[in-house]
Design a protein around this nucleic acid. Structure first.
Lengths: 340, 340
DNA sequence: GTGAAAGCGCTAACAT
DNA sequence: ATGTTAGCGCTTTCAC
């Protein structure tokens, strides 16, 4: 029943370093924290002592005394965690983690259960973290919005409502991205264009529809061949079936993400149609679904790792007191492969 | 330059709760920690005070006083982080996070850079975490092995060398899984079997080869049609090309993971061969690559989320001082779809 | 530039 | 069953 005792080499304290270096604890603290007003000699002595003793500062003590935790929370709604398989999300985590690895901050992954959101809220508000990163996947759920008043928060994905205009967020420029996809299909000579878009209560779904619609309108092309999915491959299959069932000619398809496009692929193939011969297909995300599809998918690349990196960067700068823009929009890029 | 000041409602301390409830701080501490020896009335009073004040314990102070951090580190080698796109790994993180969400432990994601592994080592040894979870993807890199002597660690994936026999680890039963895949192809009447396996310096690659070889030998089937990949789709493509180039008949293929199998798919199709008509294909992992492939892939399902959960569970139990088996092998399951 | 001293908010003996 | 009393290891005024 006893907790494992595994301490081999006792962890030295700042006091031990001070003794060894022949200075006070205050001085060691200054050296550790890179204070400028310490003699070079003393710095050297302390540094040596630290190395000799293999000293590592105790975070808890440091945090307690300085009232800073050096911890950044990455909040992931449980529902998002459940679809963690989405490469887009995994990349964000990766970007955040890599970006934070270069800082003094530690990354705390928090799964906020939908059934008990207060647990997370309390944790965040309990002075346990210096700031938080909130990702809600393709949704713009800013239910943690209110916390923004008492804790620096940076959101991944723009908020659904504009009421949240005072929040900080990083997002991909979805409108420009889908507009580019539409323009590409048009350039390819396709005129009977169909769209499988995501839920219209999610910014990503909404914005990608907007960019598409806008571009088709500009070219005087009909934009009513639209079906909705939920970003999953299965929903893409179903949407494609509905699209074909309408009986109208289709020679170009844009899907709100690669997963849905991949789903559409199988239905198109089942129907005996070819890609891009009969239907040119463009996806969005540039994830592994598009890359491994047959034929390789033309898609709108979004910097998902960059998104995570940007979120972390923005938060760290906020925490450093530097001025930061509230909105950071990352550019997309059309990756032309063989499906269009 | 000043750090953001965002405190709205000052965070109450234990002392404030004690005052409000009319008891000592020690009693409040007991209630907070669920000590059994406190009168029901007092518990009620303190609980009320806590609710009224919206009190949240300060982790740093608690940790400093109790010498426990309530933090578990999830260590991810940078190289693994870079291939975060691998759904297998993302699932492990998910499993760990979900599993830990039900405990008092906090999850700390640590990216250990290969260039500066000491930073991670120091962090782990600095008394900043109560235990660590180390995943090295399909590799059995136990370079943190030594730390196991001074910090409770649970590894994901079995160690490469048996020298690490005293470490705790959780793994998938790769041998049984690949043996099942081989048996399945044989049952399907296939006799000209080929294998695309992973690197033989990684346990996952090694064990999956072992199970395959063993089964083929038992059936007196030639097991020399083997090529190696690195678990990436691209390497699967290349391996498949080499396999076909040998000019020997192939009617059954087993790949070390779905990603390589997906790569093989495209080469098989390019060659004008059909799946499973000409070549029956079985993958391993049961990730989205296999699910979205055309035709849907028969594959060996491995409980990747379960792996993460098991790792967390084993560590938490170790930390609780409960006896735990050093080796936890999770069963796999053959998922028969349309590629075989 | 450096040291002394006073906590940061909590837990854990020890008393009672 | 509850209160008293020391710290946990560090930062941070404030003197010197």
């Amino acid at each position: 029943m006893t907790t494992e005792q595994t301490e081999s080499r006792p962890v030295p304290t700042l006091e031990a370093v001070a003794a060894r270096a022949g200075v006070s604890r205050a001085t060691v603290s200054r050296v550790v924290n890179g204070s400028p007003k310490v003699t070079a000699e003393v710095v050297a002595a302390v540094t040596r002592a630290i190395a000799d003793l293999n000293y590592v500062p105790n975070r808890a003590a440091r945090s307690l005394a300085s009232r800073r935790t050096q911890v950044i929370a990455l909040v992931v709604p449980e529902s998002t965690a459940k679809v963690f398989a989405d490469p887009f999300f995994a990349s964000i985590v990766q970007g955040v983690a890599l970006s934070l690895a270069d800082t003094e901050y530690t990354l705390n992954m928090v799964i906020s259960s939908e059934t008990n959101p207060d647990k997370t809220r309390r944790y965040l508000m309990g002075g346990n973290v210096d700031g938080a990163l909130v990702v809600s996947h393709h949704s713009g759920d800013h239910s943690y919005q209110q916390l923004g008043a008492s804790l620096p928060i940076v959101f991944g994905g723009r908020p659904v409502s504009d009421a949240a205009a005072d929040s900080y967020f990083v997002d991909v420029d979805n409108i420009a991205g889908s507009a580019g996809a539409a323009a590409h299909l048009i350039e390819r000579g396709r005129r009977n264009l169909a769209l499988i878009t995501g839920p219209q209560d999610m910014p990503a779904g909404l914005d990608r529809y907007t960019g598409w619609k806008r571009t088709l309108d500009e070219h005087g092309i009909d934009a009513t061949l639209v079906e909705y999915g939920d970003f999953s491959p299965r929903s893409g299959m179903e949407a494609m079936r509905r699209l074909l069932a309408r009986g109208r000619p289709i020679d170009g398809l844009f899907a709100g993400n690669d997963q849905m496009a991949a789903g559409a692929y199988s239905v198109i193939h089942e129907a005996g149609l070819s890609i891009p011969g009969d239907i040119a297909v463009v996806g969005f995300d540039d994830d592994t679904f598009g890359l491994t599809a047959t034929p390789p998918m033309t898609t709108v690349h979004q910097p998902s790792i960059g998104l995570g990196e940007a979120m972390a960067r923005v938060l760290v700068r906020r925490l450093a007191g530097e001025p930061v823009e509230r909105v950071t929009l990352l550019p997309t890029e059309l990756v032309v492969r063989q499906s269009s």
